[in-house]
Design a protein around this nucleic acid. Structure first.
Length: 422
RNA sequence: GGAGGGAUGGCCGAGCGGUCUAAGGCGGCUGUCUUGAAAACAGCUGUGGGGUUACACCCACCGGGGGUUCGAAUCCCUCUCCCUCCGCCA
């Protein structure tokens, strides 16, 4: 959520941001109108409440029964009026909240203008697209041939787009998770193990509800939702907190599965493990002071890049344009790794500075050392990295002409001597 | 799942229809005193909203939500969480 005062004071700025994101701008006018209505209602109802408070206090001390009754009758009418106004106010507030919940964050000045993902900008490419002297196989061939990915069993027990990892395949994914958590720990992040289910308040705080209701899995009887990303529980860690300034920044990393109920288009990404309703991810997350978030963003990008580099991947860094930018983000870099088997760049990470957008919703603040008012923190999130695609990249990049896979050096400590999958 | 007990300001803890404008204590901040510190004494102390150039001032908040009442921390309903015991269980 953005600051309502910003819309009040600089509506043209917000209108421009919406236009840059290829969105309707009419909500700005509606917000302004509702806000005015809201404030006029507040003034009216609070004047009445002040009156009732004063008179009620007097009633308590009155001795004359007639005068007392007269005041009670008068206040009963005032009370009825207050109830009616409170109800009006509730409705106006609800409409305002809904509008505000659907206004995205303002893009950073460095985010390039663009209509859609075709106008994202490649910042840099690291490594070369390898020239192989044999025909590389896609992972959906490699995996079953090596007996480490079983698509039939996934479909059998759960359904379309689910798979089972087996033996060295399962172990390889576990190795990747452990490697990433250990690397991020060295980079200064504190590892967190969080619940994989959260209550709706947490999803609201993280900005997933109400907007992404359709993409979430939910318990039918209780207020428990499967996390769509570790970003959700990590944001929730400090909702309604006021942290000490000198305890910032806080760097967190967490492994969680991610559950997403998105509608998959039938013909797209159907092969392999690239896209599914369940996937694993190691996430990085930072809470920091507003003035520190640009530097924190650079750090997080560098940390994700290092993860790719240590795995020996050829990767490129893209900057998302305004038309492709996520709802809460001001600036986002995606990292894509080259997968020679399927012959495409795979998005394995997305790093965003959401400034105070999530913090405002989550009510996540810090107390300055000078003891002044609590201020909203800034938050940043980034994948480090997304699992199935990283697994794809390992299999496809490290495959040998004979169909075996040589596991990268950095992962071997977790592979139990299995340096080669064959 | 069953029975009982709880939830009050940064923390402890009183209050159980009307000066609650939430006692008292601890902690914190400021000041007086002091060469300095401690002690003592005095004052201050949260969040959100409205309002103001800025103040003043006003409203709301005693776990969440709803209700009764002229008036609710206090009474009623409901939910959540914590504690004790029983049952079940990896």
């Amino acid at each position: 959520m953005i600051d309502l005062n910003l819309i009040r004071e600089k509506p043209e700025l917000v209108r421009q941001a919406l236009a840059d994101r290829q969105m309707e701008t009419s909500s700005v006018e509606q917000v302004l109108q509702l806000d005015e209505q809201r404030r006029s209602l507040i003034q009216e109802v609070e004047t009445l409440k002040a009156e009732r408070n004063v008179v009620s206090k007097e009633i308590g001390q009155m001795r004359d029964p007639a005068a007392r009754q007269e005041n009670i009758d008068a206040m009963r009418l005032v009370g009825d009026r207050i109830s009616a106004l409170d109800e009006d106010l509730r409705q106006v507030q609800a409409r305002l909240d809904e509008l505000m919940a659907n206004i995205p964050n303002l893009p950073d000045a460095r985010t390039p203008l663009g209509v859609d993902e075709n106008e994202n900008v490649v910042i840099k490419t690291v490594g070369e697209i390898p020239e192989l002297d044999f025909q590389p196989k896609p992972h959906w061939e490699l995996g079953p041939e090596l007996g480490i990915i079983d698509f039939e069993q996934g479909v059998k027990i759960t359904g379309s787009r689910f798979y089972v990892l087996s033996g060295a395949g399962a172990r390889l994914q576990r190795a990747l998770i452990a490697f990433m958590l250990d690397l991020h720990t060295r980079q200064g992040y504190t590892e967190k193990y969080t619940p994989f289910m959260v209550k709706s308040d947490t999803l609201v705080a993280a900005g997933q509800l109400p907007k992404f209701y359709d993409n979430l899995y939910k318990d039918h009887e209780e207020d428990l939702w499967m996390v769509p990303t570790a970003e959700v529980p990590l944001t929730g860690l400090h909702m309604d907190d006021i942290l000490d300034e000198d305890s910032l920044p806080r760097y967190y990393t967490a492994y969680t599965p991610c559950f997403r109920r998105e509608k998959m288009s039938a013909g797209r990404d159907v092969r392999g493990i690239k896209r599914g309703h369940q996937f694993d991810k190691v996430e990085m997350y930072i809470f920091c002071k507003p003035e520190d978030s640009p530097a924190a963003f650079e750090k997080m990008v560098a940390d994700a890049e290092q993860t790719c580099a240590e795995l020996g991947f050829t990767y490129r860094v893209l900057q998302l344009c305004t038309g492709d930018l996520g709802f809460g983000s001001t600036i986002t870099y995606d990292i894509e790794v080259w997968a020679p088997g399927c012959g495409e760049w795979l998005e394995v990470s997305s790093i965003s500075n959401v400034t105070d957008f999530q913090a405002r919703r989550a009510n996540a603040k810090y107390r300055p050392v000078d003891g002044g008012r609590a201020r909203l923190m800034h938050t940043l999130n980034g994948s480090g990295l997304g699992m199935p695609r990283t697994l794809i990249a390992v299999l496809e990049n490290y495959q040998q002409p004979d169909g075996s896979v040589v596991v990268p050096e950095v992962l071997q400590p977790w592979m139990g001597g299995t340096g080669v999958i064959s």
